[in-house]
């Protein structure tokens, strides 16, 4: 309806405030301030990412250095003193006497690393292909979008498993363990790029028709410059939303692969590996070995997911 008021401030044409001041007055920041869910999930995400980055500083031991483990301290319940050494562990210990609190910190680090790197990887591929498809059109577009369709119709986990399985067959067994991290990043990245490509292509098609792009073309700018300098900044909003939600998905995907036994090895475990290990103790009553990695994974994924969900709604006011 044409009669709906626009909530923007009256403008005299030029906004002379600093970028930060403008951000503080923006609708986005206002929506953030008035959404407890957004603020809580933001704080939780920041704290968990910070804790993972600082893992070596705030953990009680390096849980994967055998020299620091004491077998006598194995299977200590959380919060109770060990019967031999008297030490107590807030998240308890596993059979090797590994402090679960430290293990969770290091595991979160690995999970976040794989998640963030794979999101970066898939976003780069997806944005690039989307720009190409939208800007160049024709056969390039047809091929890229068909491949994207195929990728989207198969679940990410299946594609990642396939990439992983094929790599297993190609890489010599001796080097496999060392390559797992990279392999996971590539496998997860390759299974998630299509959504970026689709969105970016759509936005590119819209931007391409606008006058500023036409103008840039007329004055003879090269397609690459137009794509990167003119179109790219205008499609970054949706990309940011997808990337946030995909970070949560990538972390879950990594955890799932590790849980299935095709991800991070027990020597360098992610949260998924820790859960896989902990599952064996579920029936014998040592619940904490499973519980703390699992809760960490759920809270991390949930916080990032909620942040992404909120961001999507905030940037798309129609859905509010």
């Amino acid at each position: 309806m044409a009669d709906m008021p626009s909530p923007a401030t009256p403008d005299d044409g030029i906004d002379r405030r600093s970028a930060f001041a403008r951000f503080l007055d923006s609708d986005l920041f206002f929506a953030f301030k008035s959404s407890p869910v957004a603020m809580v999930s933001f704080v939780v995400s920041v704290v968990m990412i910070g804790a993972a980055l600082l893992a070596p500083l705030i953990s009680t031991q390096n849980p994967f250095n055998p020299a620091e483990l004491n077998l006598m301290e194995g299977m200590t319940k959380p919060g109770t003193a060990n019967e031999f050494t008297g030490k107590s562990f807030i998240f308890g210990t596993d059979p090797q006497g590994r402090d679960m609190y430290s293990a969770v910190l290091y595991g979160t680090r690995v999970s976040l690393l794989v998640g963030a790197a794979s999101v970066l990887f898939s976003a780069t591929i997806g944005v690039f292909l989307g720009l190409m498809a939208g800007y160049l059109g024709g056969r390039t577009e047809a091929v890229i979008m068909r491949v994207a369709d195929i990728q989207l119709s198969f679940p990410a986990i299946l594609i990642a498993l396939l990439v992983f399985g094929v790599a297993r067959g190609i890489i010599p067994p001796a080097q496999q363990e060392g390559a797992t991290l990279i392999l996971l990043i590539v496998a997860i990245g390759l299974s998630n790029w299509a959504q970026y490509a689709r969105t970016v292509r759509g936005s590119t098609l819209i931007e391409k028709g606008k006058e500023y792009v036409q103008a840039a073309r007329v004055i003879g700018r090269s397609p690459l410059v137009i794509m990167v300098r003119h179109i790219l900044p205008n499609v970054m909003g949706p990309v940011l939303v997808i990337a946030t939600i995909n970070l949560a998905l990538a972390i879950i995907e990594e955890a799932t692969l590790s849980f299935l036994g095709v991800g991070m090895p027990p020597t360098q475990p992610s949260l998924g590996t820790l859960i896989r290990i902990g599952q064996q103790f579920l029936f014998s009553g040592e619940w904490w070995i499973l519980f703390f990695p699992a809760m960490t994974l759920v809270i991390l994924a949930l916080a990032i997911n909620m942040l992404g969900d909120w961001l999507r709604d905030a940037l798309n006011p129609r859905l509010q």
Partner: peptide
Amino acid sequence: SLIGVSLPTFL
């Protein structure tokens, strides 16, 4: 449903 989306199937 949001929690459901964030909960890995295996968990």
